[in-house]
Nucleic acid binder design. Sequence first.
DNA 1: TTGAAAGCGATACCAG
DNA 2: CTGGTATCGCTTTCAA
Lengths: 339, 339
Amino acid sequence: MVQIPNAPAPRPVPTSADVARLAGVSRATVSYVLNNTSAVRISEPTRRRVHEAAKELGYVPHAAARSLRAGHSRMVLMPSPTVPVGPLYSQFLNELQWAVSRLDYTVVQYGTVGLGGDDAARAWAELRPVAVLVPGSGLGPQGVEVLKRAGARAVVTLGPESVEGAHALLMDHEEVGRAAGAHLHARGRHRIGVVVPEEPGLELFSRPRLQGVRRALHGTEDRVRELPLAYDEHAAARLAAHWPELGLDAVFAYNDEYAMLLMRALQDQGVRVPEDTAVIGADDLMLGRLLRPRLSTVHIELPSGRDLAELVDRAVRDPGAAPETHRVLGATVVHRDSS
Amino acid sequence: MVQIPNAPAPRPVPTSADVARLAGVSRATVSYVLNNTSAVRISEPTRRRVHEAAKELGYVPHAAARSLRAGHSRMVLMPSPTVPVGPLYSQFLNELQWAVSRLDYTVVQYGTVGLGGDDAARAWAELRPVAVLVPGSGLGPQGVEVLKRAGARAVVTLGPESVEGAHALLMDHEEVGRAAGAHLHARGRHRIGVVVPEEPGLELFSRPRLQGVRRALHGTEDRVRELPLAYDEHAAARLAAHWPELGLDAVFAYNDEYAMLLMRALQDQGVRVPEDTAVIGADDLMLGRLLRPRLSTVHIELPSGRDLAELVDRAVRDPGAAPETHRVLGATVVHRDSS
DNA sequence: TTGAAAGCGATACCAG
DNA sequence: CTGGTATCGCTTTCAA
């Protein structure tokens, strides 16, 4: 073996043994000092020597070794959502993350590309998280089982339906569609278009929203028309060009951003909003207030991150408890000028 | 010790030893089979027995134990950005994450609440990542040193300035302001307002953008006026109410969203855009195209996630190489109707 | 082709 | 008050 001159021996990562050697004590003592173990008393000079040695070497404990030894960790795993997610939801996820951290858990977002369903669950299980928060659908009962067998004390899904064995935060987007549909009906509109984004991944939200509109109008004479639409000016213009033939007097535009897109295209076509066609969005973004006419929208109420964090903590402390299911999505119409 | 009836003995997590026992082989054999080790040949019947045993027990390997033994991992750590980040940047981060995963790294986003600077670096170092991608500022030279001592073979910062010892992807937002300023000047505007958001965390971007405008106009007679503004209708209305006194003939509105907010407030006040005041935003969001007048904007070009992923991979393979510094933020004006 | 055993880094028990 | 040592789960030489 020859030393390659250009590759300066990459100093090995210092371990607690190195600290012990430098401080002239045993590894056990190092551990006691650095963890402030209260069960044993270490003399002040020794403590100082250990701390100095640690600092001098730039010692940082090895999380994997620690949790291996301890047999558990406080890692909460959150697979990063695979679908492009709006500002509302990502703010919610941030808040959640923050709240969980406050409870002294280590929140880790794990990007799982490609592998679906149970393979993903296995990949997550390898990290032996104490809890797993899964946004969206895609986790099945056997996925939950895999995670629990791997020691996860709590599995919580955030999505449209609950999964056997897991806690569920039901975010039922049908409510959103239902609120929009009921509102338009009450405003005297009876031929209602529903925008369904063509962007992949959004079906998770758009199908239930559409379904909600249908349900709201069930038993009435109202007609519902599905309107596929890409998030793109030209697509919107094409849709608007056919507008008269569609004979619609209202449209639920999936969310505020699609509503803005469509409303602009309609107005450019000479369709008057709301006189000819009422428009309502969802998410209650700032931009809706800035449009003219001001955009009616469905305000979505998500649970507080703190409540959710407490659910996680409860579940971790008492893994035996029956899975809780909470409906956590509130939808209320904010009526402005476009409907 | 009494068994609590309600707490059914939580079956211990199965280990490779359990698999070995069930399959009637040694742990070594289990390892060979499950890792498809090519150096040794295991008989087909044995392989089957091992696989079946693993499946029956729901065995999932323990990542910590594995990487402890291996002495290294392929974890790329990405501290999640602490500031609220726009759609542009978060899409970039997603793409990056995806590209890095394609190179067979495990991307992990780690949420570090509260602890700043070097404490954060120490927390990251505990995970012994092979590489660390740090967005924003906040990592100092000694933080980099901590990470390297902990075995990180590559530290890459994505931010306004490079850090000693780390690779840097310089995202210089001065360029954005400079492009906007030069554009407005060329359009014959000479009294230029620059919106500076009051939302905390955004200074990281807003200060350089302001500075860029100043620089673009350096040596001219043009005047630059800083305009603090909260992302809020009332704040915008208040600002617009004073508009005539400000005597500005143009405004760089920080980004498209603030531009939309301000433009609406100006129009409500009877200020004509662009005749009285030119408005330009940044980020080239869809919404700018939907406004009337269509919003001029600064299109920001971020590097492709794939290039960046390759930089990471190169750095990991050759940790001795000198840190690379790349200026990766391109800014070009998209001239529409508002300026 | 398979098994025994060492060792990765940190911790906690039990002696001294 | 401090040191030796077994242990966590897994991989990998070395022997059989």
